[in-house]
Design a protein around this nucleic acid. Structure first.
Lengths: 384, 384
DNA sequence: TATTAGCACTCGACGCGCTCGAGTGCTAAT
DNA sequence: ATTAGCACTCGAGCGCGTCGAGTGCTAATA
């Protein structure tokens, strides 16, 4: 594909994304002040159509990009707007102050992304299977109830209420807690099983039946943290886009997206593909660096990579006419999760990708912020 | 208003709610097998219009209910469908297993309500100002970070991560924790101030500056629990109703509802009105009992009362053409909050009110369930 | 007096045909 | 290789007539 074709395709995608209407040769020339006549453009457009990059809804209408067209656009002619410093500081105050409550952090990131993009945002809570259990404490609430507090790699804290035998008193629970901690501290979550944890029973002098129940509940609490949570925000925003005027279509979409675990599974699959280097999207990173455009520079350094799936490329029932952009955020070196955006194919790819990459970066930073900071320094800013 | 007029008004509201189209005299007679001719009905309809219960979009169209019409319907001719036992058990499994994590419970209740009604559900987290602090524990996570665990009236548990001076060690923190507990246990949240809490400093032998910082953070954690959270679900569902075809209207609505604290404030205002006996809606409870309809019986006993605000009755900018149904749920005797539904005025009042009342009841029950239950009994059902 | 049949009237929805304009592809000239 | 010119296509928009579901009014009826 020669340069001019690229230019034309880019212009068409840009226009179509903006107006949601098939774009014709004449208006294209006018809007972009192209140095060729509309007839020439028509020629090129006809060829682009033959090559499969464009489609016509009917004979005498303008062209709109096909899936392949969007793909080429995303791969080769994307320009990534820079995030303004104002925006940057905004999101930081939006996300900060988390102190290791990763869940909340992710939730807010999803919220932000939905608000910023006007599409549906999806975020998965981090996968903790690879991280290890640094501490586990069991604290009595009242006879019969206790709270388990888990500290994972990178200082992530989780807790959960559990039921315990009513006859256990505070000191007994404490001794069980210590036993569990001795037995599990430093272990990978993945490696913790009912068998591992039950070895803690031997370290106490309490009746086995009683201890075992506590251990079981603690085990469930640990496993619970491994469970991936899905946060979605902005469902209603999609309905403001013209492609969703059709109620049936909207319903089809919502039915698909309602199956949160399906979406989550798909996102995790994408991530794996990317890591195995199968995802060609990642090539782009190099391309862009070579071109050395200002956009690339903006995110250079630890620029997060992202994945784009367009239309039929999405193998998730009900989302075949959407686009799905995801990225993998990291907290520390071992903990990571996915965050992404689902929108119509007619999407502001450049903008959205910038936003996602940026949120990704902000997320990693915010997650790291809970230690290393001098407590004195912000003792005063907590008044609310 | 005589009986026939009531019958007709009810029929009109029912039809209009179902079809979203102005209802005419003839179709009304047919659909409801009324024993009068359409001419008679026309007479009555004309009178009802004159009385302000009905409106016409234009001369030769059918009638639709006015705000006043809906009001009369809700006050005098509501029939509340019973919730099926199947449904009842469903919601219970949906809400149960909370062990005092009230937040989560409320969130799920909102989720359920949105799914069930296809409108927007709004739930406020409980107001804890009236409840008291039973326990407070401070637990070391790592140097510089700790977790505060609060147990309130009725066994509600809250926790929050805080930053502490890095030089404090575990035993020191523990002694501070004990001092705080001695000082605050049993106090109403409302009565806890920076002054109250700082009296705990005297009980320890640690440098005051250090202790004070921990106390301050603990104070913030306590005050945080008093902050009312707003959960909304089902925003996108509203867009499936015909009244939201108009994008402008939808946007106006979303802009209004986005101000969560506004909505929350309004709901709390409504609640107060109800408690002061100003809300005439509550009269209905008596009416209905007297009538002794089967619907009333279904919810009899601890039937929760609800509030309905229709159209202009809602003094919340941007919601003047909606209806808002709310109810006050209770956890124990002192803790309570609000849950409700916002939808178009053309709403299935009876159905929604049944649902809301039912969720209310289920909520109170589920919240109570975390103690009093024999731990042995359900040791086995925890296996996810 | 309350009810109803009958009738003239109103008005939006719908279908038809027309024009308009933005688009196309093709061809011949530059 | 580019472009001016031209014939053609097709959806959007408009005007118009018809249809039907609605109205209000009046006079006859139980």
């Amino acid at each position: 594909m020669d340069d001019r074709k690229k230019q034309i395709l880019k212009a068409i995608v840009d226009d179509y994304v903006e107006t949601a209407e098939p774009v014709g040769s004449k208006s294209l020339v006018e809007r972009h002040r192209l140095q060729y006549s509309s007839a020439t453009i028509r020629h090129e457009m006809a060829e682009l159509e033959e090559m499969g990059y464009l489609e016509k809804p009917h004979t005498s209408a303008g062209r709109m990009p096909s899936d392949k067209g969007y793909r080429a656009y995303v791969d080769n002619m994307l320009s990534l707007p820079e995030i303004s410093p104002l925006e940057a500081s905004k999101i930081k105050t939006f996300l900060i102050n988390n102190l290791g409550e990763a869940r909340k952090l992710i939730e807010r990131a999803a919220e932000y992304l939905a608000g910023k993009t006007n599409y549906l945002s999806v975020a998965l809570s981090p996968q903790y299977s690879d991280s290890s259990l640094e501490q586990i404490k069991i604290l009595m609430i009242e006879p019969g109830r206790a709270i388990v507090v888990l500290v994972l790699t990178a200082g992530i804290v989780h807790d959960r209420l559990i039921r315990i035998p009513a006859m256990i008193d505070e000191s007994q629970l404490e001794s069980i807690g210590r036993a569990v901690e001795r037995c599990l501290a430093g272990k990978k979550l993945d490696d913790i099983t009912l068998v591992t944890i039950s070895s803690a029973a031997e370290e106490t002098d309490l009746p086995e039946a009683i201890v075992n129940q506590v251990l079981y509940e603690a085990y469930v609490a640990i496993k619970q943290t491994e469970k991936i949570e899905v946060f979605m925000d902005g469902k209603h925003r999609l309905l403001l886009h013209p492609e969703f005027r059709d109620v049936d279509r909207a319903n089809r979409f919502y039915r698909a997206v309602r199956e949160e675990h399906m979406v989550a599974g798909y996102m995790m699959g994408l991530r794996q593909e990317a890591e195995e280097g199968l995802a060609e999207d990642c090539d782009w990173d190099l391309d862009c660096l070579e071109k050395g455009g200002e956009a690339a520079l903006a995110l250079a350094g630890s620029r997060p990579s992202y994945m784009v799936r367009i239309g039929q490329e999405i193998s998730l029932k009900g989302l075949e006419d959407m686009s799905f952009i995801t990225t993998t955020y990291r907290i520390g070196s071992q903990i990571s999760g996915q965050i992404g955006v689902i929108g119509p194919k007619r999407m502001q790819y450049g903008n959205i990708i910038s936003q996602i990459s940026f949120v990704n970066k902000a997320l990693s930073e915010a997650a790291g912020h809970h230690y290393g900071r001098d407590p004195e320094e912000d003792a005063g800013d907590g008044q609310d």
